[in-house]
Design a protein around this nucleic acid. Structure first.
Lengths: 201, 201
DNA sequence: AAATGTTAACTAACCATTTAGTTAGTTATC
DNA sequence: GATAACTAACTAAATGGTTAGTTAACATTT
């Protein structure tokens, strides 16, 4: 297999990869084009050749990441009790994606975010699932969208705000001990919430 | 009352005020010293005179804000049912402080954050309160620190990630309609959680 | 109470780097 | 031989930080 010395796809991929790391760590304002070029082992001008501008690169990055996340989201366990834990595992692997949307949150000004309609639509099946379970009595009746938002909050917050996690629980998010504790807690939480007050402990 | 043309305290205050707005909006990397100087109506050199460096200014700002927040935190309603709603109201007024800690979260690298010990200590009474209520059977028995973390998550997340709020619920966080809906939901949520499954609706 | 000296608040202009973005030219690939 | 991938060097603007000098405010002396 011959290594081509010039390969647009490979170059673009390398740039995106480096840009991901850079934007992830420093955000739009803190990210440095030179650093991305170095990191990718690519001449800076190529970045402008393929992605117009810093913002253009950022946008390309977001939509690329979006399609990637979309695939993972495809199948969520129907069994309600495990859904929280599942999301948590997912979210941990996705800590990077979370950082990206945190930057997005800080830049949020009311204007539609990247692919907002599409992303919004992706939540609908989950919300519908909740509504379903409420009508069959498996979940208490309440606003299903609010409930969905709350689940996401419970799983995401400790990772998004690691300093709070440590100040409140005394453990670091990355600490396996915390992960286990949180997982156990969320199971318990779900049980209490669905009415099985005396499961486990 | 005579207006002094030179007044260190007033100048420092003006700088901090402008710095607050600037850092809030743009974060450490995005903030511009020149802009802060202009906004404060103060010569740039004064900023360096009073606060050494950009980072020095940021630090001063954080500890100033900290003491301010500390006062508000002083009294939290003991009645558990209203605690969520209370925190929510508080958090809304505190949306700015939330932005600041969001930047803090992104910069978090495991090292202690500003005044970490002190801030951590401030959570203890709340956690103790939960433990108390668990022992008297008013709350289901579970890890109280994890539960505290969860309450904060439920209240904070929708504000910290407004794009998720909109994508999931279809409403904007600032929309009074959303506020009401969230408040109502959280009450209901707390009721379900504490075992009163059929209160209200 | 006026004159004087001292301190530090304040300013305008400047400096050394950094930064996003460009350009003119070279060369691999088809 | 044409095209487009790629490079090195460059530019203009912005940026954090400095400096040398000015002056308001206050204390001390006369």
């Amino acid at each position: 297999m011959k290594e081509k010395t010039r390969d647009p796809e490979r170059t673009k991929a390398k740039i995106l990869q480096a840009a991901f790391r850079e934007f992830l760590e420093h955000g739009r304002a803190g990210a440095r084009i030179d650093r991305i070029a170095d990191d990718a082992g690519v001449n800076k001008a190529n970045i402008y050749h393929y992605f117009d501008s810093k913002d253009g690169l950022m946008d390309a990055l977001l939509s690329q990441q979006l399609t990637q996340v979309r695939q993972v989201r495809a199948k969520v366990p129907d069994a309600f009790r495990d859904r929280l834990a599942y999301f948590q595992d997912q979210q941990y692997d996705d800590a990077q994606w979370l950082r990206l949307v945190t930057w997005e949150a800080l830049e949020f000004d009311g204007a539609p975010v990247v692919a907002e309609a599409e992303r919004a639509a992706a939540w609908q099946p989950l919300i519908q699932g909740m509504r379903q379970q409420m009508s069959t009595g498996k979940l208490p009746k309440m606003d299903p969208a609010q409930l969905q938002l709350s689940w996401v909050a419970l799983v995401t917050f400790p990772v998004a705000f690691p300093q709070f996690t440590r100040m409140i629980t005394g453990m670091d998010v990355d600490d396996p001990k915390f992960r286990r504790a949180r997982k156990r807690f969320l199971k318990r939480f779900a049980d209490v919430f669905t009415g099985d007050r005396n499961v486990d402990r």
